[in-house]
Amino acid sequence: MPTIPADVLSVAQLARLRIDEAALDDVTDRFGRTLDLVAQLEQIDTEGVIPMSNPHDMQQRLRADEVTESNQREALQKTAPAVADGFFLVPKVLD
């Protein structure tokens, strides 16, 4: 299935990336070639194979319900792009 610029643009929108119009054909081409590469997997019979999410057959450890973190707002907001009164600021959001 050939990849077309429209596919790339809709994926880019999902990923919140903006693709320059000038670069679109190039991006589409490389994106398409990567998809061709990964399409090799179609040939492999995986009937009944359980997907593997993690290398080891281990289980989740649990944390005791304790408050271990104190207020670190100042340190954590030091490199924040825009803050006011402790809030992070973003352009007006519509609900």
Partner: peptide, 24 residues
């Protein structure tokens, strides 16, 4: 109504000043 957050050790309480209970 846990004492701490689901995935961190920050306090799980309502009404604090903005972002003082938000850890890394």
């Amino acid at each position: 109504a846990t004492k701490s957050k689901i995935f961190s050790g920050a306090a799980n309480q309502f009404g604090a000043d903005p972002n003082v209970q938000a850890c890394a």
